[in-house]
Amino acid sequence: MTGGLWRDALRRLAADRAAITGLVVLGLLTMAALAGPLLVDWRQDQIDWEHMAVPPFAVEGHWLGTDRLGRDLLVRTLHGLRVSLAIALAATLVALVIGVAWGALAGYLRGRTDALMMRFVDVLYALPLVFFVIILTVVFGRGPVTLLVAIGAFGWLTMARIVRGQALSLREREFVEAAIVGGAGTARIVVRHIVPNLLGPVIVYATLTVPQVILVESFLSFLGIGIQEPLASLGNLIADGAREMETAPWMLAVPAGCLVLLVFAFNFLGDGLRDALDPRDR
């Protein structure tokens, strides 16, 4: 029976031009990231000794130019997009699952349990991310998985805080009290009444988390504890490009443009989803 609400939400989403544009752009970027590298003749770590640092459209075969080492920028950007998207989506998913469960439970139970759960969050907040990542790298070695664990371990904190705030206010709403009077237990109330009603802000925050994670990843990569050469990510491509900004601006423009496109698409989609998921049609 809940199908009705989801169908309504989909219909409202379909009517939202900005959200649909965001969705289409995201779809295209994802497809390009997955299938694109197969269609390009170059590998991401392959060096073209004839063409180093050529601008876009200057040489046949290197449509978006090459970097200082003569590696094809198109294929590197597509690979970077793939890595960044994967890390961002996975980290956001981790944040979503842990953060929503943790926050909803703390907010609903209130009192001492809430205080304990949120103090734990505060303690984690106080740990410097970089320090944590360095320790993880020492223990598990460098790589996308270590990065994912590190970002995921921190990403859910803000989500938990947001969700807890929402859950606290939902807890005071009369329909939750009505459910208690109706004999519903804690689990049912959290799953059926609290979580569905805080989806709106959660989804918006999740769509904001994705670009945030990409930026954190690029920052860590820039420091040399993230994704390492010759592997590409949007982060280290932008970091490289920033160094060559004056002599080879396309090296910055291509991955940065890709990131901007990604962030816009996620934000448009997030806004659209929030409006569409509100059961009141305004």
Partner: peptide, 21 residues
């Protein structure tokens, strides 16, 4: 307006106490 869960149909809300009680 406030004491019915906006994401449940009227029948679901009315039926909810039956499940537990």
């Amino acid at each position: 307006n406030a004491c019915l869960d906006p994401r449940m149909t009227i029948a679901q809300s009315v039926a909810e106490p039956l499940r537990a009680l």
